[in-house]
Amino acid sequence: MSTLATVATFAQNTVELEAADFKNSQAATGAGLAYGLAAIGPGIGIGYLVGQSVQAMARQPEAAGMVRTTMFLGIAFTEALALIGFVVFILLKFA
């Protein structure tokens, strides 16, 4: 009878541990998805932005200073989206 109780306790502990592991793995997956998906959009945006800026500078080298200034600000604004994703990631993962 005591063997049966031991087995039952062991099974219950295993199920609890598995549930905790499952929850942790889901949280890690969610955090990773938040960071990864948040980085895709800005990556596309920065590529487009810089490509168009280089084209503008090649066409009008005299306007390069103005284009570079706005390009840098554009890159930084686009990057803010990725940073927001990163902050969501650290809050989900560590907080």
């Binding site: 800005p42 990556g43 920065i46 590529g47 810089v50 280089v54 890159i75 990057e79 990725a82």
Partner: peptide
């Protein structure tokens, strides 16, 4: 510069 902007981001 174009390459650096993209890979620099990563």
């Amino acid at each position: 510069m174009m390459g650096t902007a993209l890979f620099g981001y990563l």
